[in-house]
Design a protein around this nucleic acid. Structure first.
Lengths: 206, 206
DNA sequence: ATTTAATTGTGACAATTATCACTATTAAGC
DNA sequence: GCTTAATAGTGATAATTGTCACAATTAAAT
């Protein structure tokens, strides 16, 4: 990637992407920084600064070209770098994520799910099969997968994580409410719904 | 709240809370800033700065008292300010969130779920009943609920959001992949899984 | 053609957040 | 008791992020 895109900008880019896609569907020819800013409740100059980072130029009194913007955002965020991943834990959350169509669009390819519940094994979700977790090691090396999305319950979380690491998984996107212990060379990303809510609550709810 | 806690600190506090709870379960009498820092892959001085914000003092060569810390974090994050909420959309994601036990602990009380699918109506999830969405308006005013967790599919998302707003909902925690349009006085919090992943991907995955 | 008003682009600044380096404290070992 | 080493506390500084104000541009109106 040419320029490093700051974390917050990455987050906003995905929002811009959604909104811009809407505009394209509605066949709009232009979109202005203040339209975007208004939808996201942010400052319009920030939108323009963000686009500057992408070397996008708009036209005064007109705005930006949605198609062009969309493409640039996709390239910047690397939607084209396909990455393969497994979902580990086929409970409601795992299934929800397996059905989440945005992952594909954004370059994250869910290849299969894993669970231990015999009733779930061999089920299909969105063309993705659920395997018994004992199959994970072989499939990971066969399919060259090193990203796991961990959606098991709290209790087995650490044990399953340890197993994933033994199986060659290098990146864990952790949806469990545990802070996993892992060696330094394993990258863990904690999805933290409570933190997210509390930030919302602190900021907005009196 | 006495002092304003910065957003990032709120996020870390929830992680500290998890880890500290573990320590308490293991009956540890002390926890050091570097133990916490190590688990979260951050700088230990940051942990200490965070605790300073809470007016917590540790003991040199010993660390902090887990029980004391836990209590302080809970008070700071306002776990005791109970807030009532509805989940709107009883798909996998809605059900996953309904079962997510941490919400209760952190002061977010899910009172009921809503859907339109006749097969789901009247089912119970974790003592929470699923109602037809037409019941929402009455129940919201009856139970004094103004927070909705929106977990419907992409397509109906905006329409459902409009309906929620008409029904008196003031805060929407939006799990759909849409950027909702809403009047300024409605607070929308977009949960953005893709942004979260992309931040992870940009930072950690080469 | 001229004027007007909307919009971008951007420098200056402000606020927030993280890191570093160092001091002070004190439990533990001798 | 004295020394050592681990740990907290903290000021200085750096990096990141957001806001504001305003000049430059230009489409649209006249």
């Amino acid at each position: 990637m040419a320029k490093k895109i700051p974390e917050k900008v990455v987050s906003r880019l995905t929002f811009y992407h959604s909104i811009v896609s809407e505009f394209i569907e509605k066949n709009e020819q232009n979109i202005t920084s203040s339209q975007l800013a208004h939808r996201l409740n942010i400052d319009d100059s920030q939108v323009r600064k963000d686009f500057n980072l992408l070397n996008k130029v708009g036209r005064c009194r007109v705005g930006y070209c949605p198609k062009d913007l969309k493409e640039t955002i996709e390239n910047t965020l690397g939607f084209s770098n396909k990455r393969n991943a497994f979902i580990v834990g086929a409970g409601h959350l795992g299934l929800a994520l397996a059905k989440y169509d945005k992952f594909d669009n954004y370059g994250l390819n869910i290849l299969a799910l894993f669970d231990t519940d015999p009733l779930k094994i061999d089920m299909q979700i969105n063309d993705k099969k659920i395997f018994h977790i004992t199959k994970l090691l072989d499939l990971a090396s066969e399919l060259n997968v090193d990203i796991a999305i961990l959606t098991v319950p709290r209790q087995p979380a650490q044990d399953v994580a340890d197993f994933l690491i033994e199986s060659g998984i290098k990146y864990i996107w952790n949806f469990t409410p545990c802070v996993l212990s892992a060696p330094k060379y394993i990258k863990v990303w904690n999805e933290n719904l409570m933190a997210s809510f509390l930030q919302f609550a602190c900021k907005e709810i009196d």
